[in-house]
Simulated assay, not measured.
Amino acid sequence: MHRAPDRPGVGTLIGLDGWLGLVLLSLLEAIVLLLATRDVGTTGGTPAMILGYVLIALAGCAVVLPSGDPLPARYTAGVAAIGPVAIFLSTRTPPDRPLTVIAAPIASGLVLGLLSVRGRAGPAWASAVAIVSVTVLVGWSAGLPSASVAGAIGPVGTVGALTVFAAIIRPTQRSLYELRVETTTVAVANAAMRARLEERDRQLARLDRAARLMLERIAAGKLLDDTDRIQCRLLEAELRDGLRAPNLAIGELAAAAREARGRGVEVLLLDDGGFAAVSPQVRDVVVSTAAWELDAVGAGSVTVRVLPAGRRIVASVLVAEPGQDRRTEIDGEGLVQTTVDVYEYG
């Protein structure tokens, strides 16, 4: 049964994966670097502040690089938790020094906005509210003016805008997904139809090559003698081989089977698909071994079987002659082993 393609998220729709995602990540990290440089240059910089911006940069990688929407839970939890921690670290400065409380929240807000686009609006909003709370507490404790602290609500605006964007574009996403499913279904149906037509043409061509002359004689109303009847039986057996064991009814093996049947030997060819898992060299060993066994039999029956894939033994040739049974097995390495059971009548 055909499996429907995975439903793409908004992040996939706007190119948050592949090389476009790398470009977006580069731009995001450049913005974070510029804001960090501005902040460090204004405040003089501290190890805690630098660590905060490093965490924001890592959160940007975690929200862009993973594939599949919504963003996996382990990345979501990390990005949401990093935001408030990074803001606290990046805004911790001694009370007697200037404090910039806008740059770091802006950088973190961009990351959270992308988190919302990746299908994780709830964690993004929770982290944005936590960032604003941390920024307000740190700002007021440092004695900054209310207007300066109020400018730190940027993450809420960014997350809100990108959440609305994702909600607007989601119907387009659904339409594209349905179109993708429909296109894939049609392509699969067309491929199956082509395969059936090609197989039909192949079988008709094979039937034409093998049975055309005999069918024309029968259609013309000509009487068939004993030789013709024997040829009809051989032809019927060959056609059955082509349907039942297409990988065996070829070349020297098909010729050997025809000759053995002409001598009165009962020949049965079976193919259960084991050739799909072995090399062409092993297939050649199976075909040549089976052909040799058929050439050596004067009476009785021969069963050539290709076993299902995954077995240690790839194929077996069972020969039942008057007075003995002979079983030949070929394994996945092409090694041939024969066992003989001899018995007496009466």
Results as ranks from 00 to 15, higher is better:
5 P>H: 13
6 D>G: 08
10 V>Q: 07
16 L>P: 03
16 L>G: 00
25 L>R: 14
28 L>W: 09
28 L>G: 12
32 V>W: 08
37 T>P: 00
42 T>G: 02
43 T>Q: 01
44 G>L: 02
49 M>Y: 00
50 I>F: 04
58 L>P: 04
64 V>A: 10
65 L>T: 14
66 P>I: 04
71 L>I: 08
76 T>L: 03
78 G>L: 12
82 I>D: 00
83 G>F: 04
83 G>I: 07
87 I>L: 14
92 R>M: 08
92 R>G: 10
96 D>M: 03
101 V>N: 15
109 G>D: 07
110 L>H: 07
111 V>R: 00
127 S>F: 10
132 V>A: 13
135 T>V: 12
140 W>E: 11
143 G>A: 08
149 V>K: 10
152 A>F: 01
165 F>Y: 08
170 R>C: 02
173 Q>M: 03
175 S>N: 08
199 E>M: 09
205 A>Q: 14
206 R>K: 06
209 R>F: 02
209 R>K: 04
211 A>K: 03
211 A>H: 01
215 L>M: 14
216 E>L: 06
217 R>Q: 03
217 R>F: 01
218 I>F: 10
218 I>R: 01
220 A>I: 01
221 G>P: 13
230 I>C: 08
237 A>H: 12
242 G>H: 04
246 P>K: 11
248 L>S: 13
250 I>K: 10
251 G>H: 03
260 A>S: 15
264 G>T: 10
268 L>I: 14
269 L>V: 05
271 D>K: 02
274 G>C: 08
280 P>A: 00
280 P>M: 03
282 V>I: 12
294 L>Q: 13
295 D>F: 14
296 A>W: 05
296 A>Q: 15
297 V>Q: 07
298 G>I: 00
300 G>P: 08
301 S>A: 15
311 R>E: 12
312 R>V: 12
316 S>P: 07
317 V>Y: 01
319 V>R: 12
322 P>A: 07
327 R>Q: 08
329 E>I: 05
330 I>A: 09
333 E>A: 15
336 V>W: 01
342 V>C: 12
342 V>S: 14
342 V>Q: 13
342 V>R: 13
343 Y>R: 08
